[in-house]
Design a protein around this nucleic acid. Sequence first.
DNA 1: TTGTAAGCGTTATCAG
DNA 2: CTGATAACGCTTACAA
Lengths: 320, 320
Amino acid sequence: MANIREIAGLAGVSVSTVSRVLNNHPYVRDEKRQAVHQAMERLDYHRNLPAIHLSKGTTNLLGVVLPSIEIPYFGNIVEGIAEEGLKHDLQLVLIQTNYNVEKELEALELLRGSLIDGLIFTSRAASLKIIKEYNPHGPIILCEDSDQTDLPSVSIPHEKAFMDGLDYLLTKGHTKIACTLGRKQGTNSHKRIKAYQTIMDKINQPVREQWIFDKCLTIEDGIHLTENWCRMTERPTAFLVTNDQVAAGMVLTAKEKGIHMPEELAILSFDNQQIAKAMHISTIDIPIKQMGKKAVQFIQNTEKRSKVSLPFQLIERATV
Amino acid sequence: MANIREIAGLAGVSVSTVSRVLNNHPYVRDEKRQAVHQAMERLDYHRNLPAIHLSKGTTNLLGVVLPSIEIPYFGNIVEGIAEEGLKHDLQLVLIQTNYNVEKELEALELLRGSLIDGLIFTSRAASLKIIKEYNPHGPIILCEDSDQTDLPSVSIPHEKAFMDGLDYLLTKGHTKIACTLGRKQGTNSHKRIKAYQTIMDKINQPVREQWIFDKCLTIEDGIHLTENWCRMTERPTAFLVTNDQVAAGMVLTAKEKGIHMPEELAILSFDNQQIAKAMHISTIDIPIKQMGKKAVQFIQNTEKRSKVSLPFQLIERATV
DNA sequence: TTGTAAGCGTTATCAG
DNA sequence: CTGATAACGCTTACAA
C-alpha cells in the first residue's frame, strides 16, 4: 500500500504538498497538483484512515448505544441517526447492549479512546453520574425525557403523553386502567409511572401494582398479556401499553378469544408504526426518526438548547 | 490526555515496558508492572485507539452493509453479527445504503482505508466484479445464495426453498400461483424467480410477468397487494411472498375484505418472524440470525468452506 | 527482563 | 505557493 511519502517521491514534491492536494487546500500550483494526482493513480494510492484519525484527533465516527436492534423503536432511532449522519459524513458504530451496563461502559471507553467523536444513548442502564464523567471526551446525547441539563437530551414529554393517553381512556369511560412498560427502571418509564399515579389519584382509583406490567416489548409479550388478562380475577377494561408491538399481540389474541374491543378491552399504545395502522390500533405517535436526527444535530452543535422536547400525537383508531 | 511516554517517565521505565504491561505481555518484573499501573492510575491514562490501529494495522472493527435497518430481515442478520462479533471482541460499523451503490462503495473504501478489518454484505446492489476488487484489503462476506466461490457466502438455498414452497402450494391444490420479491435484481430473487419458472413449466402454467410483484417488503406493500388482487381480472389463488411482513399486510386486508383464507387466497411467506406466529401465517423459516453468525465466523476464518448453505423449514399454519 | 529506536501514515507549524 | 520537520500515540524488532 503506497503511502503519501511514495507519492511525494514519484511526483517530485514534498509530503506536505501531497497532503494539501489530498485535502483540497488552495495554494497548490496546478502542475504539481496534476503530478500528484498522476502519482496517486499510478501507485493506486488510497488514504489510511487510522493515520488520519490519529493525526487529526477526530474520526467522524459516531457511537450509538442501543439495547437491541430488533425492537422497532430503536431501529427507527438508528434510522434517523443514519439519515442525518449521512449529511454530516458520519459513520455509525453500533453498540448493542441488551441493557448490560458493562457494554455501555465499553461504548464510553470508545469515546474516551478517541475512536468515536460522540455518543448517542438511545436508552441506557448505566447511571447518569457515570456517563457524565465521560463528557469531557466528547458529546454524549440522551434519547430520554431527562430533567438534568448537563447532558443534552431529546424526547417527547412522556409524562404529558401518558397523561393524555390516560385522559383519553377516561373520556371513553374507562377507569380501571392498566399499563405496561418496557423497562421499569428507565427514565421514560418513570415518567409514565408518575403520570399513571397522578391520573389514578385524580379519579380516586388505587394504583394496583399488579396492573403495571414490566418488560413488555414484543408481540409475544402482548399475546401473553391478553392470556394473562383472561385469567385475572379483577380485570382492567383498558390498557395503555409500551408500543405497537405489544398492542398488536394483545389485539390478535383478543380477537381470537372473541373478546370485544374496545367495549370489553380497550388498548392504546405508543409509536404509531406501520403495524398499528394496518391493525387499526389507536396509538400515540412519536416522531422517532426525528429524535435520531435531533440527536445528531446536538452532536454537530447545530442544536443549542440542552433539551429538545418533540411533539407527540394521539391517533384515534379502532382499539379504544 | 496522558500518553504512554508520560507513564513511562513517571513509572521510571521505558515506553516498551509500558506497552508490554498494557498488552499483558509476560517478561515484565512485577515491581515495574506495579509502578506502571500506579502511574496510569495517577495520570488517569487511557489508550488512544486510532494510534493502536495505525500501529497494528487492524482495528477490530467490522463493517456491515445493509439496505435498511427497518426491514426486520436485515435487523436480524445484524443481531446475529453483533452476537457473534461480541465473542470476538468486534465492534460494528453500520453502513446503511438503501441499495445505493455509491454508499456500498463508501463501505468498500472503509475496508481499503483500513478502518474496518472486514465487511459483510447483508445484501448488495454493486456488481460482484467491483466488490471482488476490494478483497485484497480484507475479507468480504456475502449473505446471499451465490454461485461464485471467490467470495465466501452464507445463505439458505433459495431456489430449493422457493420450489419447496411452490410444491407445497401445489399439493394444496393451487396452480394459479403468484409471487412477490423484495428486489428483482438481487441474487436471492433471481434464484426465486428461477424456481418459479421451473415449477410453472412443470405444471404447464404460463409464467405471467404481472404475477411476479417486485419491491414488496413491508406490511404496507402487503396491504396494497391484496387491494390489488381484488381488482385483478384473472386472479391467482395463492401467493408465495417475500417475507412475513408482506404476508401480514395481505392477511389483515384479506380478513377485512372477507376474503376466505386459505380457500380463496392462500399465502405462504418467508422468514418466520414473531408476527407470522402471532398471525398464524404459514411460512418458511430462515435461520437469519445464524446467517449473521456464520458470516462473522467467515471473517474470523473459523469457517473454512467458501459457501455455507443453511437449512430452511416449512412451517404449516393457517394461511395455506 | 528491559530499553532504544524505527516505524505506522497523516497533518500542521513554520520558515522561506 | 512549497518544503522540512515535528508531532499524533502506540507497537515491535533488535540489542543488551
